[in-house]
Design a protein around this nucleic acid. Sequence first.
DNA 1: TTCAATATGCTCAAAATGAGTATAAAAAGC
DNA 2: GCTTTTTATACTCATTTTGAGCATATTGAA
Lengths: 323, 323
Amino acid sequence: MSRPLILNLSAVILAVTDDQPRVLTVYRRDARHTGATRADAPALPSGPLDADTDRTLEIALRRGSLEQTGIEVGYVEQLYTFADRGRDPRERDGGSRLVSVAYLALVREQHVAAGVGAQWQNAYDFLPWEDRRVPGSPAPHIAALAAWSAAAPSAALRRQREERGAISFGLTRAGWDGFQALERYELLYEAGLVAEAWRERARSSRPRGIGRSMALDHRRILATALARVRGKLKYRPVVFELLPPTFTLLQLQRLVEALAGIRLHKQNFRRLVNAARLVEGTGTLQSGSPGRPAELFRFRREVLRERQGPGVRLPGAAGRRAR
Amino acid sequence: MSRPLILNLSAVILAVTDDQPRVLTVYRRDARHTGATRADAPALPSGPLDADTDRTLEIALRRGSLEQTGIEVGYVEQLYTFADRGRDPRERDGGSRLVSVAYLALVREQHVAAGVGAQWQNAYDFLPWEDRRVPGSPAPHIAALAAWSAAAPSAALRRQREERGAISFGLTRAGWDGFQALERYELLYEAGLVAEAWRERARSSRPRGIGRSMALDHRRILATALARVRGKLKYRPVVFELLPPTFTLLQLQRLVEALAGIRLHKQNFRRLVNAARLVEGTGTLQSGSPGRPAELFRFRREVLRERQGPGVRLPGAAGRRAR
DNA sequence: TTCAATATGCTCAAAATGAGTATAAAAAGC
DNA sequence: GCTTTTTATACTCATTTTGAGCATATTGAA
């Protein structure tokens, strides 16, 4: 164990604004000095564990997030620990091995304190293939993936690539599964269709790549976070961490749609949410919007006593065929 | 960042034998020297990351598991990273901070190579309250938890403790949720009902504690692993990692019951498993057992193309009321 | 031959789901 | 003031899935 370790905490801080999932990013202060990453690739806020003062990782994460972005995160959950060799290009120069414990944090929409250098970005700018809310969208990555499969050196490998592509991108009878966001990113990475895959290879032949890049392997971490929220949505009432205390059912639906990346059947959505007794009406109506005013609802905390894995079901989402 | 870090990999290696989930344990070689833990508390196999040679954490884990137990693990999945201060009593003497990345591994029943010092233990010896397959079992921990709630210093806190206890131990209308294994362990820990909670406190007043102890916080890690398998069971075909290539439906059911810790309705279980097209008959029958011989089945890998989140549903498990 | 034990097929009511249709209540356009 | 547009909300209905149980089939052992 000669080579030293550095333990980092990285945060995927999510909010949803204007029906778009947003992720809070910073620009790495050290990018210029190393020249290893493009100077303008957005990064997730990350900070070291202070082994002397931070009693838990979560405390270190909250401290780091506040320091770097000025935001006090509420709901927080550990995601995954990333430690593959070569995550940080600086490692190769005999530097220390970088281990990052990634966390997912959910916050209500708010403005970042000016001057801190943190910015909200649309999460789907980085993972555009994950947003399937617009039905007519073309799918260039599907064609590119098919080409990659076809270029496989052996027939067996070709078959395997096709299989993986078909399953993770929902081209089979099983349909699209929002939960598989990480598998999709990793497949695109292997296929050389995201720019990060070309960092280690020849610069000249570098293709454009699908979606915006992030620093290091932060896009992979973002994909992990997206998969986690989407999964958790279904059996834990986490959406309410992203909403104000009262909200309309349409607001709730749009929020779920933004995270899940799909459209839902409106009437059935409200039926499910009501039947699960997840929310209760406040009696007051929302005004100022076009159309019939909607009732404001609030989260029913008691649902935790009453239901097994209370979460938001996705009516109309199952078995949806690929376009 | 003066204090050095040690990064450990810990493995929860699970198998199921004779309808009992088993976990592979070792006896810590260093326990005698420090005197900090009871010399005979079983521990999870753990080993350091070799930052020079281990390309990934998973590789380090496979290497460490093989070295310490002689077992080559198959299915492997990262669980959680534990890094709270004070996990290892030796930390207090100015030692280094211990960070453990825990993995879950599933293996088919097999015998440990003799002499390596590893042993299979019944997982429910450590977490006896998690096994609800026997209907008539008394529940001493429920009474003890109630006493702890009653002893709360304030009324608000008492209410809160009662609420937590009721929800995690399935005393509410929501019923028992196998997935909440970690919450239950943590509640018992806070209530001082597991022996580990008394390590830091006065030795004299130490109560017996429910269930067998493990070294350090390994029981918490085990609870995390149990919760994870139980959750994953439902949407990924992980059970088949624990079964031989062909098996009877009853074998499959007993295995699921062992992991889930509950009994299932037999006819409905086979209906679900069949309807989900998770398995296919081989045509051959099992012989030698009492009763009508059962057909042998095999896992249908193609199910991954056909179904969203293919896993084993738990018929008859929902809303089961507390005894 | 009978019994105990297991496997497997089948029924039936209740609940949940998918895909709508229908109606209500507001603001905006004219 | 009336119509149009827009959103909210109620209700329907066929289909599927679930919970619970009964009935029958096949084996080895008493």
